[in-house]
Simulated scan of single mutants.
Amino acid sequence: MASKQAQNPQGFDKPFGSVGIWLTLLLSAWLLTGCQRAPEMMATASPEGKAEPFVTATRSNSRGEAPTPLAEITLPTEQPQNEQVPPTAAPDPLTFVFPEAAPPAVSAWRPPLYPVPWAPTPHDHFYFSRPIAADEINWPDPNYRYGGVFFEDVVHTGIDIPAELGTPVLAVADGKVEWAGYGLYRGIQGDTSDPYGLAVLIRHNFSFQGQQLYTVYGHLQQVDVRHGEQVTLGQQVGQVGQTGKVTGPHLHFEVRVGNGDYFSTLNPELWLVPPTGWGVAAARIMDTPGALYADERVRFISMETGQVWLVQPYSGAEAHSDPYYHENMVISDLPAGMYEVRMEYGTEIFNHFIQIYPGRVTYFTFQGRHGFKDDLPPNPAADFSPPPAPHP
């Protein structure tokens, strides 16, 4: 017995005693901790639909219970460990980031106008600004030019400028209001059946070759001036509408010389100042014997861009020619440059090349099988005046 107690003085039957038991427990706990699973990687969808990874750390237990979440940490998207991420270049201090361009204003589609009055030669008379401002479309509708025939063989004695309802209509020069309201065509104030609808007539403060000048603004939605009122260049006289005999909203604009009535008009495209760097073409289109010819349209083709314009010669007796050019066809707002002019006559096609000059009128003639010529017309008679108005 004595030797047995000496070998085990504490009285334990196990070889390690209490110290061995505690060492065994500590070793087991350390092994269990090292065998835990790595944190789980999960993903959720962000509001934008992109996967955003996050980490959920869990504590294992031996009771089979659900793990208890410890923390939720949002992490940026990671690259695979075996893929090298290239370095990010430093921002270039000379690189500028511009906002997305907005749709260009209409005024960006054409240059600003020449100053008025603009008369580069003794025969030109670009005396008037545009009745629609530069930030709106203000060039003539190609299908409703001066001298066309519409509405039961009625000759178009002005130009039509398409615009939205309510677009401001501006006086093209200083003058005095001679008419404001319905009834301009027949001269009956308040006649709502009048084809001009609501209209304004302005008598201007200057003349041409001794003849008084007038301008007309028709089919208005609203009139903003009174009879007898003095107006200035650029003053609003009304708003674009669709009163009278129309197919849609637009401004009907006329230039009248002399008497100021329906029978005293000239082509406004020879009177409205062109955009800077753009010009005008005027022509006298005739058949082979020399009579005015309007059976075919004239085609203009830009040699630079390939754009095509079609122009109908004057078709009615109420359309009058300029006293110098004696034209029966005009097209304005042509960018300066070289153009091919093409004309069908009978079974033949004739072509010609012209140069459009900035702020100038380019003139030519066509005479049937004789083709094209660039000769300028002779000087006009000094006593020119429009035909007198017929008396009722």
Rank of each mutant, 00 (worst) to 15 (best):
M1F: 15
M1P: 15
Q5V: 14
S18H: 11
G20M: 11
T24Y: 12
T24L: 14
W30D: 07
W30F: 12
A38D: 14
P39C: 08
P39K: 05
E40T: 10
S46P: 02
V55G: 10
N61P: 11
P69H: 09
A71R: 06
T74K: 14
Q84F: 15
D92L: 07
L94S: 14
L94K: 15
S107D: 08
W109P: 10
R110K: 12
P117Q: 06
P117A: 05
P120I: 10
T121Q: 11
T121A: 09
H125T: 05
F128V: 00
F128M: 00
A133C: 07
D141Q: 04
R145N: 09
R145M: 11
R145S: 11
Y146C: 04
G148E: 04
G148I: 06
F150P: 02
T157A: 04
D160G: 00
A163L: 03
L170I: 02
L170W: 01
V172L: 02
D174Y: 03
E178M: 00
L184A: 02
D194A: 04
P195C: 03
Y196L: 03
G197Q: 02
G197L: 00
R203V: 03
R203N: 03
R203L: 10
Q209P: 01
Q212C: 03
V216R: 01
L220W: 01
R226K: 07
Q235A: 01
Q242M: 07
V246N: 01
T247A: 06
P249V: 05
P249R: 07
R256A: 02
R256Y: 01
F263K: 05
E269I: 06
L272G: 05
P274T: 03
P274E: 02
G277F: 02
G279K: 01
A283V: 11
I285T: 04
D287H: 06
T288P: 12
P289L: 05
E296T: 14
F300K: 02
G316E: 05
E318N: 08
Y324T: 01
E327G: 00
N328V: 02
D333F: 05
G337F: 05
M338C: 13
Y339C: 04
V341N: 03
G346L: 08
H352Q: 15
F353W: 13
Y357V: 09
P358T: 14
G359H: 09
G359M: 07
R360N: 15
R369L: 12
R369W: 13
H370Q: 13
P377H: 14
P377W: 09
S385V: 13
